[in-house]
Design a protein around this nucleic acid. Structure first.
Lengths: 110, 110
DNA sequence: ATTATATGCCACCGTTTGGTGTCATGTCAA
DNA sequence: TTGACATGACACCAAACGGTGGCATATAAT
C-alpha cells in the first residue's frame, strides 16, 4: 500500500540532529529545493544533500526535479514505526511513576 | 526532579539495533547482570558492556554492583523525549491521509 | 589456598559517518 | 551564446563506531 523503499533504518535516519532539523524545516513547507535548505545550515551543499539522501533512503523524504532544482518534501509516515516502538515503553515510565509514589508514601509513613 | 545525567543524545542511543534489543530485554526483568545479557548476543562481553554504557550515558539504564556482578536496570523515562518529538509529526501523516482522500475524491469526480 | 567467575580497562582495528573540495552537466537569464 | 546557478558524482579525510583480545582485579566457590 504505502511506499516501502526503506533501505535505511528509520531509527538510524533520525539519530542525527541535522537530519531532525531538516525534517522540521520540511514540515514547515510544501516543498523546498536543496539550495534553499542549504543556507539554513553551517555546512556545505554536499553535506546537506547527503543528509537528504539518507532521509530519502529511510522513506522520510521524497524528491522531485523541477527545472534545475531538486525539491524535497517530507513524508512523515515512516515515523509511525518510531511511535509504535516508543508507545510500547510508555507503560514503563508510567509504572515507574507509580513505584516512585509508593516509595514516597513509604517514606512518609516511616 | 528526574535524573538528567544525559551526556548522550537519546535519539543516538536508540539508533543501534543491539541497544534496542538490550532495552527490550531489560524491560522483561527487574535487573540483569552483564554476563546474563551477554549470552543473548552473538558478540563478546566487552561489546555488550559498551552498548550498556552508551545507554547509561543517555540515562536509559542504571547500573548497580552486587558482589562481583554489575546489574543493569531499565529507566524508560528519557524515551519520553522521543515520544514528544514524534508526536509532533503525527499530525503530518494524518493530514497526508486527508490529502490522499482529497486526491481520491478529485479523481472520482473527473 | 586455589581456582573459576564477572567485570573494568585498555590497545587495537576495519568500516561507517559527516564533513570537505572539485569537476561535469543541465538549466535559466541576459 | 554566454554566463550564472543548481545539482550530482566523486575522491578525500579525520573522527566516531562497533567490534575484538588481553590483562588486572575483585569476588565466590571448592
Amino acid at each position: 500500500m504505502s511506499d516501502n523503499n526503506q533501505s535505511r533504518d528509520v531509527f538510524d535516519a533520525i539519530a542525527d540532529p541535522t537530519r531532525r532539523r531538516l525534517i522540521q524545516l520540511l514540515s514547515e513547507t510544501e516543498e523546498t529545493p536543496l539550495h534553499e535548505l542549504t543556507v539554513k545550515f553551517d555546512m556545505g551543499r554536499t553535506a546537506v544533500s547527503k543528509h537528504l539522501n539518507i532521509l530519502k533512503e529511510a522513506g522520510l523524504v521524497v524528491d522531485r526535479k523541477v527545472g534545475r532544482e531538486t525539491r524535497y518534501r517530507l513524508n512523515a509516515a515512516p515515523l509511525q514505526q518510531i511511535q509504535d516502538w516508543v508507545a510500547f515503553y510508555s507503560r514503563f515510565w508510567s509504572t515507574n511513576m507509580l513505584r516512585l509514589n509508593e516509595l514516597l508514601v513509604e517514606e512518609e509513613e516511616e
